[in-house]
Design a protein around this nucleic acid. Sequence first.
DNA 1: TGTTAGCACTCTATTAACTTGAGTGCTAAC
DNA 2: GTTAGCACTCAAGTTAATAGAGTGCTAACA
Lengths: 361, 361
Amino acid sequence: MELDARKKKILQAVIKNYLETGEPVGSRTISKYTDLNLSSATIRNEMADLEELGYIFQPHTSAGRIPTDAGYRLYVDDMLSTRQEELEKKDRKLDDKEESLKAMQEVMDKRVDRIEEVLKDMAKMLANNTNYTSMVSMPPVNKNKLKFVQLTQVDDTKLLCTAVLEGNIVKNEMINVDKKIDQQMLLKLNLLFNNTLNGLTLQEINFDMAANMADQSGEYGELVSDILNAVVAAIGAADGIEIFTSGATNIFKYPELSGNENASRLISTLEEKELLTDLLTDSLEEIGENTTGIQVYIGEETPVNSMKDCSVVTATYEFEEGVYGKIGIIGPKRMDYEKVLDALKNVTGSLDKKFGKNKNK
Amino acid sequence: MELDARKKKILQAVIKNYLETGEPVGSRTISKYTDLNLSSATIRNEMADLEELGYIFQPHTSAGRIPTDAGYRLYVDDMLSTRQEELEKKDRKLDDKEESLKAMQEVMDKRVDRIEEVLKDMAKMLANNTNYTSMVSMPPVNKNKLKFVQLTQVDDTKLLCTAVLEGNIVKNEMINVDKKIDQQMLLKLNLLFNNTLNGLTLQEINFDMAANMADQSGEYGELVSDILNAVVAAIGAADGIEIFTSGATNIFKYPELSGNENASRLISTLEEKELLTDLLTDSLEEIGENTTGIQVYIGEETPVNSMKDCSVVTATYEFEEGVYGKIGIIGPKRMDYEKVLDALKNVTGSLDKKFGKNKNK
DNA sequence: TGTTAGCACTCTATTAACTTGAGTGCTAAC
DNA sequence: GTTAGCACTCAAGTTAATAGAGTGCTAACA
């Protein structure tokens, strides 16, 4: 059996209607909704075909139809493939969006330095605008180059190590020392570390360096490796990737999610954050300039168990040359994909503009 | 009518039973449970009295009794007033608790420097141990003395301001500058700021100082106030008090909480964190050496609306001389108060030992 | 050959009537 | 003051009946 134009149109109508109402869609509704001018009987025949093809199904014999995951998939893919046109339409649409876009810009202007705050606010705004749950990952710091290190004596037994990374991310780590280090030596150590490490990423720092530097620092040789450890710890502080979420409770707005006990599992996942890593790091590398970096997981497609009856949409933003972060929306399968995609495009666009590749435009 | 010893005993039995089962307690149950050797009929008479006194009530005519807020209050106050004896018993109990206590100590030893991490782990552990929701507030940094400030040139237009506070809390803030500042001047500024500000708390820093310092810095006068602003911003970074929560989803384990839509409001509150401030700062001052710093809010007593059918127990710990933080448990009104009080005592005890007044014992 | 009207059929959701059992309050006797 | 006994109440669970939405299929139509 073929999925001809008419069937497709009907499928679209079914899905659209279901997205709005959340109720199974009957043949009569479609017959009236569309401009196809077909009787409900004809629609029924077509719907039976669509069911056989696996795009829709009936929750029970005498009910209307609901899209299957495959149905959603077709719908979303279709939407994504016509996105080019929408990009052009965007200029027109901008009027409506201007307000929220402006608000977003303001947030970002206000606190350029504090990327964490920016991202947190971003997540909150996304959640509020969409009425779904949002999550944002910090760009992995350990890919960023070290701008410089600063060692400071805090008191007799403590040394503060401050590391500044590309993108002005600041990390601190405290080091315990046996004895006070004299001022002269501290200056020397500072110089030594900066000369050796500046411009490197976490991966590029290795322990041969420790040996080298130790040689140059005489009696303080042992201290050097302590400090290097601290630097590494500071940079890699988040042993996972840091993730912010917002709007977890929005899922209660969708009965199909809030009803069953999965709701609590989902909120747990959002609270723990660890499992979200799968969604927000996975395939970060393989996304280059070629795609928009937008990914849609529908139902069973998501790698996270507690989200098997949700849809998840993620997008990638560029923080620094080659350093990416991700941003995502979690909602019911019948989410307003169009709105979500737009929102994510806006946000990643702004982020890119602020930090990433389009910084200078 | 009087609340004689027997009535009290029956009330206790009702509450204890209800804490365990969560079901309304009938007269027959009490008749069998207690060592009073009274028939259910007698118990019924007493229970009617207790109802009239406002300590228990029936959800409907033909049901057993449930404690009212006043009932819980009596029960808890009683428990608190007999706490002295329990303190002595504690030595014995320690055997059971040793394991969890040890685990806690380990967490704290591992990361003395990172109080945030300690507190987060603490919250997680508390939530896991009690099966309720926990929250912990960072001690308000702005009461801490400034240990020193460090200004560092990041690049031509950016200055990094690092502030270290008593208790080795490190805060950073980025400052945008017009032009590069020469090394000599930077040293001078560093000296100036440290001389002026060290040893002061946020409240003690005022803007007369800015004027004073500006006088001493010639053409850089304007910069001085920028920097002072940055220092203040760094110290007071959290314009509210920082709060960590854990185990929000534990509330789903208690049907009386998870059932109604308050559950979602409660989780919202925990996500936003802002409203928790009421619970975790309120009366911080008035708690001195005299009390244990433990406070129990039952039902309507809590200042937070979304917790009106929960009980909240908070405890105070000392971080530095005169600087307090709070730690709290949120659960159903029928929570295991005994367990919760013990857990909180343990935790605040450990925290006090690590940071606060008993540091040297 | 594709489209439509009509009808019998299926299944959910809602409502009402009935049953059960836990627990009470009251009274009368001990 | 305590207790046994009994009538009474009410929530919760079960069953039966009803209404309504929507389907599938057949036969007629263009």
